[in-house]
Amino acid sequence: SEIVVAMYDFQATEAHDLRLERGQEYIILEKNDLHWWRARDKYGSEGYIPSNYVTGKK
C-alpha cells in the first residue's frame, strides 16, 4: 500500500472527507478520482483527501 505525507492541513467539510494534519502519514486506499483519493489515517479513520495536499513518502 502507498504511504503519503500531508504537506498542508485540510479541514474535512463533508462527512466522507478525512482531515489532514501537516506532516502526518496516510495510507492510500483508492485513487479512482484524480483530485480526491480515499485514505486512512493512523487512528483508522477513512475518507477522501485532496490529492494535491499530499506527497509520496521519501
Rank of each mutant, 00 (worst) to 15 (best):
S1N: 13
S1F: 15
S1T: 13
S1H: 15
S1I: 15
E2A: 09
E2D: 11
E2I: 13
E2Q: 11
I3A: 05
V4D: 00
V4F: 09
V5R: 07
V5D: 00
V5C: 11
A6I: 03
A6D: 01
A6E: 00
A6P: 01
M7Q: 07
Y8A: 09
Y8R: 13
Y8E: 08
Y8D: 06
D9Q: 04
D9K: 04
D9W: 05
D9F: 05
D9M: 05
F10A: 03
F10W: 15
F10D: 00
F10V: 05
Q11H: 13
Q11D: 14
Q11C: 14
Q11N: 13
T13C: 14
T13E: 10
T13K: 13
E14P: 04
E14V: 09
E14F: 12
E14A: 13
E14K: 14
E14M: 12
A15S: 12
A15L: 12
A15R: 10
H16C: 15
H16F: 11
H16R: 13
D17G: 14
D17N: 15
L18E: 00
L18M: 06
L18H: 01
L18A: 00
L18G: 02
R19D: 13
R19S: 15
R19L: 07
L20V: 04
L20Y: 01
E21P: 01
E21Q: 10
E21N: 07
R22P: 05
R22A: 13
R22M: 11
R22L: 08
G23R: 03
G23A: 04
G23M: 05
G23V: 03
Q24D: 07
Q24C: 12
E25I: 10
E25L: 11
E25N: 06
Y26G: 00
Y26V: 04
Y26A: 00
Y26E: 00
Y26I: 02
Y26T: 01
I27P: 01
I27W: 11
I27L: 12
I27V: 12
I27K: 07
I28G: 00
I28Q: 00
I28S: 01
L29N: 00
L29K: 03
L29P: 00
L29Y: 02
L29F: 04
L29V: 08
E30D: 13
E30M: 09
K31I: 05
K31T: 06
K31R: 10
N32S: 14
N32M: 13
N32W: 09
D33A: 08
L34A: 14
L34E: 14
L34C: 15
H35K: 11
H35S: 09
W36P: 00
W36F: 08
W37C: 04
W37G: 00
W37S: 01
R38A: 03
R38L: 15
R38Y: 15
R38S: 03
A39L: 04
A39R: 02
R40C: 06
R40T: 04
R40L: 08
R40H: 02
R40F: 04
R40A: 06
D41Q: 01
D41H: 02
D41F: 02
D41N: 07
K42N: 05
K42R: 11
K42E: 06
K42G: 06
K42M: 12
K42D: 04
Y43Q: 08
Y43N: 11
G44A: 03
S45L: 12
S45F: 12
E46N: 03
G47W: 03
G47K: 00
G47T: 04
Y48R: 12
Y48K: 07
Y48I: 08
Y48H: 05
I49L: 06
I49D: 01
I49M: 03
I49Q: 01
P50C: 10
P50V: 03
S51A: 13
N52S: 15
N52I: 10
N52E: 11
N52V: 09
Y53K: 07
Y53D: 02
Y53H: 10
Y53G: 06
Y53I: 06
Y53M: 12
Y53R: 07
V54S: 01
V54M: 04
V54G: 00
T55A: 10
T55I: 13
G56I: 14
G56Q: 14
K57S: 11
K57A: 11
K58I: 14
K58F: 14
